[in-house]
Design a protein around this nucleic acid. Structure first.
Length: 423
RNA sequence: GGAGAAAUGGCAGAGUGGUCGAAUGCACUAGUCUUGAAAACUAGCGAGGGUCACACCUCCGGGGGUUCGAAUCCCUCUUUCUCCGCCA
């Protein structure tokens, strides 16, 4: 969530920037400022009441010690109203603080100045494009047909044991998945990211920390018995490693990578575009996460983008990079670059990575801070990106690398697969 | 799952009703000394709110209660440890 201090200091600027998301934040911001004012005045009243009560208590103690029970009892009677007052003020304070919190949760992150205005993915700005789009035979197949033809992914079997959106990878398909995971992790660790293995279920506090809760509750699978959530991305457990932490400046940059399966309910998704691997309830992803000094976070973001580029180059997949417009930008992000691979057989772009800077938005919720050169605690910046999400990379490989003789394996993956062709 | 013990600052660890946000040690930061480092010495050193700055307020696992007053007493939840059971 946004920092209260920032809203106080830069109210108009924030309202203006949020217009790029096509929302009029003015009423919410106004509400925040009023509640903040109320909160502080209530707090002051409560503090004064408590201060007086503390003072009286000390005096009473001294009287008792001196054996002056009479005087002590006189003072005791005075504490009654103070107690009532502080109880009432405490309740008021909680109510106001909760209201304030609830409204702060409703305000999305302020878009970076480079974010283009716009409503839908049509308005995203293409900033880079690379790679040759292969010319395929006229009988080229989309990946779901290829998966069947070569018996490497079984969607029906997944339906049988779990449900739609839970594919079963078989034989060389399974091996290719494992190869991709290893390859991505190797690339990321070579680039300086430390590999982590983290839990695939998280508690409620973690969901709040990275912003999945409270607004995207319906998108996560929830285990009611234990009140845990299946992670929708490794971003959640990895970023939450730093919840309630105070780093020192020399800890930067923090660079982590983790492979996890990701679970998403995808409530409300349907249609032709969700066929095959395009949209799943469970999929694999290798994530990169960084915690940065505010001054370096955009440089870090550029570095992450460059890093993802090198992977796609090695895989020789045609891709483009989009700068997301305000309307398409995630709730918690300040700036996001989406990577899309062109699927020739489907004749469309598939999103395979999303790299974002959250600035202080997540860190503020997480209470992720660092000590600056003056010894003051400051909120850090968090970033993350996919490097990469497997299913659509797999789709891209299957579709773009298909030949009459079978599916070629990209050269860099051959050592990881142990074969160079699926036929 | 059963029985018992525990939860205090970055870590270790005192503190069982009042002057305790909390002794002490370690770690850390700055300074003195040193060619430099170490050692020694000196000082500082939790977080949040509030204030121009002070004052002041809150926090001793979470929540609730008793009391004029709670780290300390009571209830409850969570977690950790030990023993037993089960087990990849």
């Amino acid at each position: 969530m946004l920092q209260l201090q920032a809203i106080r200091d830069r109210k108009d600027e924030i309202i203006k920037a949020l217009k790029k998301r096509n929302i009029d934040a003015a009423p919410l911001v106004q509400n925040v400022l009023e509640l903040d004012e109320k909160r502080r005045s209530t707090q002051t009243k409560l503090d004064n009441t408590l201060a007086e009560a503390n003072k009286l208590s000390k005096e009473i103690g001294l009287f008792f010690k001196a054996g002056k029970a009479q005087e002590a009892n006189v003072l005791k009677e005075k504490t009654g109203t103070l107690k009532e007052d502080s109880k009432r003020l405490g309740d008021d304070l909680n109510t106001v603080a909760d209201e304030l919190q609830a409204i702060l949760y409703q305000i999305p992150n302020v878009p970076h100045q480079s974010v283009p205005a716009g409503n839908t993915d049509e308005d995203n700005e293409e900033v880079f494009k690379e790679g040759e789009i292969p010319t395929l035979n006229t009988d080229a197949l989309p990946h779901w047909d290829l998966a069947k033809k070569y018996d490497i992914i079984d969607f029906e079997l997944g339906v049988k044991i779990t449900g739609a959106g839970f594919p079963v990878y078989k034989g060389k398909g399974a091996r290719l998945q494992r190869a991709l995971i290893s390859y991505f992790l190797d690339k990321n660790t070579e680039a300086g990211y430390t590999e982590m293995q983290v839990p695939h279920l998280v508690n409620e506090a973690s969901g709040f920390g990275t912003g999945q809760l409270p607004d995207k509750e319906g998108q996560m699978y929830h285990v009611g018995e234990d009140d845990l959530y299946l992670i929708p991305t490794a971003e959640v457990p990895v970023t939450n490693l730093f919840r309630d932490e105070i780093l020192s400046e020399k800890d930067f940059p923090v660079c982590y990578t983790a492979y996890t399966p990701c679970f998403r309910r995808e409530a409300g998704s349907y249609g032709a575009h969700v066929r095959g691997l395009n949209r799943l309830h469970q999929f694999d992803k290798v994530e990169i996460v960084r915690v940065e000094h505010p001054e370096n976070s955009y440089k870090a973001l550029d570095g992450m983008v460059e890093h993802v580029k090198t992977i796609l180059r090695e895989l020789k997949l045609p891709y483009r990079i989009l700068r997301l417009c305000g309307g398409d930008l995630g709730f918690t992000a300040a700036l996001t670059y989406d990577f899309e691979v062109f699927s020739t057989a489907q004749d469309r772009w598939l999103e395979i990575s999303s790299v974002s800077n959250f600035e202080t938005y997540q860190a503020n919720r997480l209470k992720l801070r660092y000590k600056d050169e003056n010894g003051k605690n400051q909120v850090a910046h968090t970033l993350n990106g996919s490097a990469l999400a497997l299913p659509r990379v797999l789709a891209g490989i299957l579709e773009n690398y298909q030949t009459k003789e079978g599916i070629q394996i990209p050269e860099v993956l051959v050592p990881y697969c142990g074969f160079d062709k699926i036929d």
